[in-house]
Nucleic acid binder design. Structure first.
Lengths: 342, 342
DNA sequence: CTGAAAGCGCTTACAG
DNA sequence: CTGAAAGCGCTTACAG
């Protein structure tokens, strides 16, 4: 005895009116009498009527659903971004369909097509590390599905983007080390491709340059997976070179804490002999001993802002078919959190 | 010049046949000629035809979408669960709609209704800490929408459930401390309500009992938010009581590392003076110094298993309208990972 | 082997 | 103020 879902027809029959009238009453059309509206509303509430979202989407304009493509989910920063997105979409009556690229271009393509097929009203995404060409995103512009990129964005695609200023973040981290008296500052960077690690690296070089410190490529290590283990390994290696660094700026906190622990395990003192600054302000940075100085990256705000920009485009387009989707880049502020490691 | 979405009608017109035939050809009906099938397939591929999922859902049986209600997203364990769910649903052609209860009963109710209105094929959920009564879930059984609970489950609702054996986990953690020679073992537990913290606490008591150690309520502290900070605070407090504990079992790794750092900051030695075991095997546990011993909780497998059980029920019901949804409880194994803290 | 017709649940121009 | 009709894109019993 499964219940069947209440439809407009059920309400109409019980009230002896037509579905047209019921539909209009529920949507508060001005040409329906107050009396009818009251009756319809009352019955709809009593029966816990929920419009069939598939039918509404099929008929109307938009599914009230947003698609998200994210490179990783087990990840402190991205979790925060997702939370920002969810809170904003939830508050604005949009559903969130979540998909994973696992940093693979192949999967990313698949997810774009899936979301297209699902007729989402818009897409939020952070690119996979692998992704260079953005040809697979063109289907979105062809069909005028708004896209907002965040964190890992491409400069080859025109759309709203939400990022932080990675160059400045790297610059602030490095000048902090310089001001704290470091003379030889190493950098453990991320992979070549994503713009973030490129930016942080540039900021590092810019700071050195400004302080008249010669850039030394032997002090730069490049991660593949950007893990704690890589940080530990590179931290160790850096302490074995003849002219050891006295400061390290790392592309993430995972890597930073890895380096920190390696240095402690070797028997050297942080921050006395080596100072370290990470990036992201993950929880891990607050918990290491000494706690890791880091550049705070506002994940929640990034997610919230990206969702807001997307929903604004969706709503504007609903009202005005000629509305052109935004193409600004919003760059959110970062801050240095100085802790025991520097 | 927005492109319009390719429909069956477009393909039919180009080929000079009807939508009926196109639909059947694409679904590989036996009564369509091979020749026609080939032509249709070829054109559909060429035009990158994607069936309108709303229309399919409206017409057919099921939306190929699963709803997830999760208490928290910025959370190492739940992130892993979600990844397990996503990988499984993705591999089986289901979409995932993700919603947050933020551990609030009110929001949880809202999300259940939202997912019901969205006509998801099934629901996965872990209960909010606040949730005691499960009356708001009855709508799912009334409309025969399958539900699988994981991690935080209720014994008042009949459905498939995936959990770990918290009692055993707490027992294993505590007996480990006893065997390592601890005489006075404290427990920093979670809130009263969720079954997990209750279970871990029971396991703790069971172990004490078995080893003939008298249970001392002054050695039990109860967290509200289960954070690093609470762990730090309680760790400190425990070291201030006259007859200090020499071992601590904590409800999570956050709390465990908090306690560990507090004890180090006081100037006491871990594991020499106090041994600590956490719970969950979060990343944080590998990174503290000494690394935290912990009970590994297989988040990914929990998610994967829950998704599998749900999709099995969905598919079976599609084939057999009389199929009755499962109501077994799968209890996954935990393991002790011994590290430097014990 | 192919197609005409009905219908899923809704919305909205149009008629009365 | 209310309702009959068309249609969104699809699937499937039924007819030929």
């Amino acid at each position: 005895m499964t219940k069947h879902r209440i439809t407009l027809k059920d309400i109409a029959e019980k009230l002896g009116i037509t579905v047209t009238t019921v539909s209009k009453a529920l949507r508060d059309y001005p040409d329906i009498s107050e009396d009818t509206k009251k009756k319809v509303l009352a019955l709809a509430n009593k029966l816990n009527y929920q419009p069939d979202s598939q039918a509404v989407a099929l008929r109307g304009k938009g599914s009230k659903t947003i698609g998200l493509i994210i490179p990783e989910i087990v990840h402190y920063f991205f979790s925060n971004v997702i939370k920002g997105i969810m809170d904003y979409t939830e508050a604005n009556g949009y559903r969130l369909l979540i998909t994973l690229s696992s940093n693979s271009l192949e999967l990313e393509k698949k997810q774009v097509n899936l979301l297209f097929g699902t007729k989402v009203d818009g897409v939020l995404m952070s690119l996979a590390n692998e992704t260079k060409s953005i040809k697979h995103l063109e289907i979105l512009s062809e069909y005028e599905i708004p896209l907002v990129m965040f964190d890992k964005v491409s400069d080859q695609f025109q759309c709203n983007k939400v990022t932080i200023d990675d160059v400045n973040g790297g610059y602030v981290a490095t000048t902090h080390l310089l001001r704290r008296g470091c003379k030889r500052i190493a950098h453990i960077r991320g992979p070549k491709n994503p713009l973030n690690s490129k930016g942080r690296f540039e900021g590092y070089k810019k700071a050195l340059d400004e302080y008249g410190v010669k850039f030394d490529p032997t002090l730069v290590k490049e991660c593949t997976d950007v893990t704690y283990e890589e940080g530990y390994q590179f931290g160790k290696e850096l302490m074995q070179i003849p002219n050891k660094p006295d400061g390290i700026f790392t592309v993430t906190d995972q890597v930073g804490v890895g380096a920190l622990n390696a240095i402690k395990d070797i028997g050297m003192k942080v921050p006395n002999e080596v100072k370290i600054v990470g990036f992201s302000d993950s929880q891990i940075a607050q918990v290491s001993q000494p706690a890791l100085s880091t550049i705070h990256q506002p994940g929640y705000e990034i997610g919230e802002t990206a969702a807001r920009l997307l929903i604004e485009d969706i709503e504007l387009r609903k009202k005005d078919p000629y509305h052109i989707f935004g193409s600004k880049q919003i760059i959110l502020d970062t801050h240095l959190f100085r802790r025991g490691s520097s």
